[in-house]
Write a protein that binds this DNA or RNA. Structure first.
Lengths: 244, 244
DNA sequence: TTCTATTTGTTCGTATGTATG
DNA sequence: ACATACATACGAACAAATAGA
């Protein structure tokens, strides 16, 4: 009966397809909102919701009095790591085979609790994984992941798949991550990380720390991934916020 | 009469103030949308536009059937570089004194044109600047900036101020940057960069490349900034995209 | 230059769907 | 089962900016 995907989302997908197909090219004007209203048989409100979705992807920018301008063609992920939403993290994970190297349970002490941003004294799991560019390729990421004790069962689920741990947690425990706080920095490879990545100990690496937060603001997972300096690029797009 | 700022923007500012003042704390529920409608005397549509602005800043997340949950208090910029919008770049620039080291005009050859993403054969300006943590502090950024020949006059404007070049270009030429495409990577310091930052040549640095694009999709400025690996952190927040 | 038509941005109203407690 | 809350979707009107006659 009621479609599982909202109308505005379907319209947005259709427009993304058109851009990807080259029907609209960067610099072109999209069809006007009244025109799209006719084409898709939806209200202007719905068309605008769809255009906002494209705007948030960095694909278009609206200009009053002129039209909606295509800014970029759809993202074309290569070795780069294009990142504007949680879905982009999923996309990256889906294309890089992962291996679970080790796991252990520990009680969070003061120092770790402070760094994780949780209360000390509780039992958490610490998982060590690596990701390769492809099945036989070089290691492109060495990660440590921490999750509360209760989520330990989800770790079993990811042994055989490449999906991120947080996806397994969502499926098994029915909770939903709504936000990821991310910090990028340059770090020196630890002995273990150096071994994983095949670089010298102390070599520069790109370090990505992520804190996964649910809708209630609760901390549900923390990860620290290091990538070899060579070849790792993190791409993002900023927009002006005045006048959504 | 006609307010220069839209109503939804004023409401959004008021809500950010409340969060910053601690009236709502992380994990708290905001007042409901009908309640906010009464408080501000605007329609629910306007309230929702304001809440969307807060959502896009990563401050709140809506949950149907429950309410709108505060996710974080307003960004508290320190030495870190919190970056979710062009305004955050401005904020960063406003707090770090800048010095113009050198400038020259050159004709873009094939290789540079390919890297910049423009057509070869045209004349561009290349500017070399540094930024310090504070007036007497260490250099925290060494930048090269390229702009088309026509914008050369704007370079004079920034000799005496700390504002980014693109702000001077906007003011003087009346054009507007609508989007910045950003790439972060780990690089090795060149001789000049090493001198600027006070590190060894070849030392690891965080490299931030930015391409400034106007509403029409035209490339108006390219910059490449390197930051010392020690102490540079780039923070951002990812959210789940609804629908899709 | 002035005027007009077009286009996006903002704001109101109303109704229904869906998830939560 | 019920009320509450946010999400989606329809309609309408005016404002502001642009482009072209």
């Amino acid at each position: 009966m009621t479609p599982s995907v909202p109308k505005y989302s379907a319209v947005a997908d259709a427009l993304v397809d058109r851009i990807r197909a080259g029907i609209y090219k960067p610099g072109d004007l999209l069809d006007s909102e009244p025109e799209l209203t006719r084409q898709f048989g939806v209200s202007r409100h719905t068309v605008r919701a769809a255009l906002r979705a494209l705007y948030e992807k960095g694909l278009v920018i609206g200009q009053r009095g002129r039209g909606t301008v295509v800014q970029a063609t759809a993202v074309n992920p290569r070795y780069r790591h294009a990142c504007n939403s949680i879905e982009d993290v999923l996309q990256y994970a889906a294309t890089t085979p992962r291996q679970v190297v080790a796991r252990r349970r520990l009680v969070v002490d003061e120092a770790l609790a402070d760094w994780l941003g949780c209360a000390p004294g509780y039992s958490w799991w610490e998982v060590h994984t690596t990701r390769r560019q492809d099945t036989a390729g070089p290691v492109v990421a060495s990660s440590q992941i921490w999750v509360p004790d209760a989520f330990g069962d989800a770790i079993n689920d990811i042994e055989a798949t490449d999906e991120p741990l947080f996806v397994a947690i969502e499926r098994r425990f029915g909770c939903t991550f709504a936000q990821i706080r991310q910090t990028l920095s340059v770090a020196s490879a630890s002995a273990r990380e150096a071994t994983d990545l095949g670089v010298d100990e102390g070599a520069p690496v790109m370090c990505v720390e992520r804190r996964f937060v649910d809708e209630r603001g609760g901390l549900l997972e923390v990860s620290r991934s290091v990538h070899p300096a060579q070849g790792f690029r993190y791409e993002t797009s900023l927009r002006r916020v005045i006048g959504t």
